[in-house]
């Protein structure tokens, strides 16, 4: 019995560690967040092979320890000015349903908890190009985190 309880406890803990937890990163001055459950890993920039015929924002493919995955430049995806990659630039590898994709971001911040009551839907009125990838907005004491809609983002 006791072992059952502890297993259950453990599962709850695992769930708790991902619930309301977001990986945050920066693009320009904005702070964005991704649900931690979808984030596989964060890697530094590695050589990217361009695939001819793909859209501008799709940087190409990388060799992630033998797996080939696609990489998207989030800046370009959001229609922002491209910026030269530096030592801060990172690739966040996300896994969503059957897709595994790398997202190039300016820099990675921290993993933080944003409670449900501090998360609200974005203003629906203006659906600008950027706005359609934002699912929710998280309120922080010193600003906001734009929480990304990964499904939308992956729809090439």
């Amino acid at each position: 019995m006791s072992s059952d309880n502890s297993t259950e406890q453990l599962e709850n803990d695992v769930e708790d560690t991902t619930k309301d937890r977001y990986m945050t990163f920066n693009i320009e001055s904005e702070k964005y967040g991704l649900e931690i459950a979808f984030v596989k890993e964060i890697i530094e920039m590695i050589p990217i092979t361009r695939v001819p015929g793909s859209p501008e924002y799709v940087e190409g493919i990388i060799n992630l320890r033998g797996d080939i995955i696609g990489v998207v430049d989030v800046r370009k995806r959001f229609g922002k000015q491209p910026k030269a990659y530096d030592e801060q630039t990172c690739i966040i590898v996300v896994e969503y349903q059957e897709y595994v994709l790398g997202l190039i971001v300016d820099s990675v911040n921290e993993v933080m908890t944003i409670e449900e009551e501090r998360v609200q839907a974005p203003p629906s009125a203006k659906l600008s190009q950027l706005n359609q990838y934002i699912r929710n907005i998280g309120q922080l004491g010193d600003g906001v985190v734009l929480l990304l809609d990964l499904e939308r983002l992956l729809q090439g």
């Binding site: 001819p52 793909s54 493919i61 080939i68 995955i69 897709y99 090439g156």
Partner: peptide, 24 residues
Amino acid sequence: IPKYFKKTRGISGCTLLGNGDISL
């Protein structure tokens, strides 16, 4: 090529070379 990409004319796939580079 990962599913995320649309099929490109003239490219049928990719491969890893001995040094870990990707070749189309």
